[in-house]
Nucleic acid binder design. Structure first.
Length: 289
DNA sequence: CCATGTCAAGGTCAC
DNA sequence: GTGACCTTGACATGG
């Protein structure tokens, strides 16, 4: 079991998320920002080696505007060496990585332009992971998307667009059950037609389910991870007390986590802690484990 | 220099 | 039809 946190480390004094306004886009600004972000990503990797946190979600903002029409810069070649070196370090230390494009990546949208931009965004993620030279156990995690008043049709659109993407994208995609619209059962419908692996999010499951328990949900998604995909990825979090339902906790609720681990006992999965204080909570979880 | 308005992108829901 | 929310900090403008 590998554990980790998403994108940002608050302890090391830099972020691999640095960005700038589109109005100030220039080659120089782009290059200096990417350089900063990759140097910081390297530091995050070092930190994680030191603390034995070997599952890392890499920020989608590492290469700002990478998929935007404004970006004509050949970052793939310009930063090839840096990415290769980070990738080598990942491999030497037996890391697993993932990326999670944001809410604007919606491949089942009825709007063709939205779909085009979404695929372009997936291509960027795929390029990035390919340049790290990580295998297909490194996943690009997305949500199914919108419902548009007809979930069956929306699921059909998802499958159709998924099938139309290049193999390198298909091989890396994974879908996650969300907290409002697409449950584990909905994801399973998609899996049955695409074999796309499913990332189980325990907190989203608490928010939206069809009566299945955590264990039942896990047993459903476990077999969606074929041998080339690696062991299942899980997102772990819990409700932030006295906040909107669905709001992720600021800090780990260790009691909740103990219950979670009791249920997951003996299961082999890699877990990302979607908790706001990031490495701090993960280290606490690790201490417990 | 500092305060604060604003930031590429979509979808859903409350009103 | 419009605006808040997700998430969210930090960029960058203008006083």
């Amino acid at each position: 079991m590998k554990i980790g946190y998403p994108c940002v480390n608050w302890s090391i004094g830099c972020t691999s998320n640095k960005k700038f306004r589109i109005k100030s886009f220039s080659e120089e600004k782009f290059n200096s920002t990417v350089k900063n972000n990759l140097e910081c990503l390297d530091k995050i990797v070092d930190y994680n080696i030191e603390h034995n946190l070997l599952f890392l979600r890499i920020s989608s903002e590492t290469i700002p505007f990478a998929s935007h029409d404004i970006c004509k810069i050949d970052w793939q070649n310009n930063f090839k060496k840096e990415l290769e070196q980070i990738g080598k370090k990942l491999k030497q230390n037996n890391f697993r990585v993932s990326m999670h494009p944001g809410q604007f990546t919606v491949i089942n949208s009825p709007n063709e332009e939205v779909v085009r931009k979404s695929i372009s965004e997936l291509q960027y993620h795929s390029d990035f992971l390919n340049l790290l030279q990580v295998d297909n156990t490194a996943k690009i995690q997305i949500h199914v998307g919108g419902v548009y008043g007809n979930k069956d049709a929306a699921i059909e659109r998802f499958i159709k667009v998924y099938n139309s993407t290049p193999k390198e994208i298909k091989d890396r995609l994974a879908i996650e059950n969300d907290d409002k619209h697409y449950s584990v059962d909905d994801c399973m419908i998609i899996f049955n037609k695409t074999e796309i692996p499913i990332i189980l999010d325990n907190f989203h499951l608490e928010c939206l389910n069809n009566g299945e328990s955590l264990l039942e949900a896990y047993n459903l998604i476990e077999n969606t991870w074929g041998k080339d995909h690696g062991v299942p990825m899980l997102d772990y979090s819990s409700q932030q007390p006295s906040a909107r339902i669905g709001k992720h906790a600021d800090h780990i609720d260790i009691q909740h986590f103990k219950e979670f681990m009791k249920i997951m006992k003996g299961k082999d999965a890699d877990i990302i802690f979607e908790i706001k204080d990031k490495e701090r909570s993960v280290l606490e979880a690790k201490k417990y484990l």
